[in-house]
Amino acid sequence: MNSSSQRRLIRIRIIVYCVLGFHAIVALIAPLLPLTPTDEQDSGAMLQGFSATHWLGTDALGRDILSRVLHGGRPSLIIAVLATLLSAIIGVALGSLAALAGSWIDEALARFIDFLLAVPTLILLLLIASFFGHDPFILSVTLGLMYAAPIARVARGSTQVLLARDFVRVARLQGGSGINLVFGEVLPNVWRVVLTEIAMQFTWIILAFSSLSFLGLGASPPTPEWGLMIAEARSYMTINPLSVIAPIVMLGSLVLAVQALVDRE
C-alpha cells in the first residue's frame, strides 16, 4: 500500500470518527441545548427557509427543523441499541450453540436461521406493528430477533471453523467445553468478524426503524424522528427542501459512518 492511499484512509477515518462523535454528542445533549421545543408550532411561520430564529427553517406545522433533526436520532438510537444488544446476544448464542451441538440440533438451528433470513423483515415488522401497535419494547424485540439471523450465521460459521482448530481440540482434551470454549477460545478470535456483523445490523436496524416511522408505524407524531420527519415533509419538498434534506443528511451520515467504521479493516 502506498503512502498517499494510506493518508487518504487516515483522512476518511478521521472524518468517520468526527461524524460518529457528532452524532453521539448530539444524541446525548440535545435536550440540554437552547433549542426551540421540538413540538412548538408557529402558525405564522410555516415551511420557511433559513432564518435567524430558525436556522434550518420550519416544517409544515411551523416547527423548528434544527431542533427536530438534533433530537431526531434519539428514538432510533435507543431502539437500535436495545435491538442490537438483543440481536447480538441471540445471534451469538444461537450460532455458537448450533456449531457446538452439531448433528441434528445444528441442522435444525441452521434451518431456523435460514428461515429468519428468508422472512421479509419489513413486511413482518409491518404485521407486528399493525397487531401490537407501536410499543417500542415489542418493536425492539422483533427487530432484535430478525436481525439476529445474520449474526447467528456468522457466529456459527466462525465457531465451526475455530472448533476444528488444534488449540480448541487441545482445550477439549484438557476439559474445556460449551460456554468455556465459546467465550474462551472461539469468540476472542472471531469477535472482530462478529462485531463487524453486529455493527452492520445496528445500521440496518436504524434504517428499518426509520422506514417503519416513514410508513407511519414506528415513532408516533409529534415525536421528532428522522424517518417520520421525512414522511411528514415529503409533500412539501418543493416548498422547503430543507425539511426533507436535513433528516436525510442526519440519517445517512450516521448509517454511512458506522458502516465505514466497521468496513475499514
Partner: peptide, 15 residues
C-alpha cells in the same frame, strides 16, 4: 396519513 392533513390536524390539536 391516508389523506393529506389528517396527521397534522391531530398534531395541531394536541398542541
Amino acid at each position: 396519513d391516508v389523506e393529506v392533513h389528517m396527521v397534522e390536524l391531530v398534531e395541531a390539536y394536541q398542541q
